[in-house]
């Protein structure tokens, strides 16, 4: 509950930042792929570190590869990307990712609370900073 009440504050702070420095790279990305909801940098950093190892097109983990490929998600059209985000949100809410089996051998692969919160906010939000 306390965390939820921080959200509006965070949003306002975020807006202030956005106004302070317009991001030229983000704009060109949007111009190139007007449909693609670009992955925010903080989300991308977590994904690279904690998810991408299994969820990529060349993954040896067949199931992980079949279920989600982050590169494909970034390139996907809007509706497809949103559907994937919804499923990611579900997996995070249920706590099924990263899998418990995987964490047995690699406990450092667990998402920290802050990381989990960042991913949840991103995957649940329809479109906040536009």
């Amino acid at each position: 509950m306390k965390k939820l009440s921080l959200l509006p504050v965070a949003a306002i702070v975020g807006l202030l930042f956005l106004q302070a420095n317009p991001k030229p790279e983000a704009d060109t990305m949007l111009a190139l792929h007007p449909e693609a909801p670009a992955l925010p940098a903080d989300v991308k950093a977590i994904v690279q570190q904690k998810c991408y190892g299994c969820h990529n097109a060349n993954s040896k983990n067949e199931k992980g590869k079949a279920k989600l490929d982050w590169d494909a998600l970034e390139a996907a059209k809007k509706s497809k990307a949103m559907a994937s985000m919804g499923k990611i949100s579900e997996a995070l809410t249920e706590g099924t990712m990263p899998p418990a089996k995987f964490l047995e051998n690699k406990p450092e692969g667990k998402l920290t609370e802050a990381e989990l919160a960042t991913l949840m906010e991103w995957s649940a939000g329809k479109k906040k900073s536009k």
Partner: peptide, 9 residues
């Protein structure tokens, strides 16, 4: 909407 998208996917 999100549920419909997930289900269609």
């Amino acid at each position: 909407m999100m549920e419909q998208l997930e289900k269609l996917d």
